[in-house]
Amino acid sequence: MNSQIGEQAATAGQPDPIEKVSVIISQGSLEGVYPGLIMANGARAEGIEANLFFTFFGLDVIHAKRHEHIKVASVGNPGMHMATWLGGVPGMSSVMTHMMQKQIAELDIPSIPEFVEMISDTGAGMYACKASVDLFKMEKSDLIDQVQDIITVGEFYDIAAGGHIIFT
């Protein structure tokens, strides 16, 4: 007991570094996807082990035909500072997406397909949620090659064991 207290005191000023993270991406909008990708990529850059788990609309990020077409939500998104009726004008989401992609590119942040490929190249694991794949009637062949496997929630927890879980 005493030695435990001593150990805690010795390490009190220096918290244990994070060594592993699992990032869940559950959204299919541009603003819903980038934060999780940045968290995962940033983890790898710090030498932290990282796995990504794509669920629900987040599956679009690893869908071969859809990942180039992820858009900003222009309706129901107070962060856009735009009247809801204006956000609903046909084509508005595409226009806003185009503008934001331009700004993102100016900061030298990769597009979503390029970012996903880069994160895979860092050695991060990429997994699709089985329940979501079934729900949306997808097949492994619909997904990009970087996806290692379609896994259940239980398998996800096995992979995530010993690390932190970040839900986005």
Binding site: R44, A45, E46, G47, M118, D121, T122, G123
Partner: peptide, 21 residues
């Protein structure tokens, strides 16, 4: 990865604990 001539994949093989860092 973009400009050094070494790919991201190779960078992580060379410096597994974080290439830039």
């Amino acid at each position: 990865g973009k400009t050094s001539g070494v790919t991201v994949k190779e960078l992580y093989q060379l410096f597994p604990k974080g290439p830039a860092k």
